[in-house]
Amino acid sequence: MIPGDFQPQRPTSRQMVKLGVLGVVALGVFVAIVLGLTFHISAWLGQPVVFARSEGPDQPIAFPHTTHVQELGMDCTFCHRNVEKEAAASVPATGLCMTCHSAVGDDLDEIEKMRSLYEDGRSIHWVRVHRVPDHVHFVHEAHIRYFSEKDGIEPSQVCQTCHGDVKEMEKVKQVETLKMGDCVSCHKENSAPTDCATCHY
């Protein structure tokens, strides 16, 4: 043994306890970080698309966009009539459904369901498919106006940019993630403002 050679001292039992405690704490911190990451990632990704709803959610009334749009050729704006005017596209009132369905579709279960709700004066609680958080103020009107002017297309052709090909969907599902990245990249492509206060206030 050379003098000055480094010889690790055997830790005293006191130090052992300290190290043990430290180890437990470190393990705890590690677990907390893992859980924290899981929390953030799951919160961030916790949207229908990622958590593998390959299909859209079940609606209280199985309204088929396929029948109405694809087969009957109805325009999006016929029912979502607010989309060209205001922030929200708006879901139609049951009264609007009844303009046709008081006469059409007598023997279909879903229509009977809708009629009975209408007659009882109860509203339909649709399950929301597309949703942005409270601190995001998305305005349908401005987007429809911009794209239909820019591309010279009908307002109802603009919808699919974000909502996908709804007319093919038996159950409506979300196809775009609708994360801020999507918004910003599209805003950049179209030289729309990327000022935070455009959407966040």
Binding site: P133, H135, V136, P193, D195, C196, A197, H200, Y201
Partner: peptide, 10 residues
């Protein structure tokens, strides 16, 4: 750009 001092809550 509009001279506002913006607070972004998110």
């Amino acid at each position: 750009e509009e001279g506002l001092n913006v607070q972004v809550y998110n």
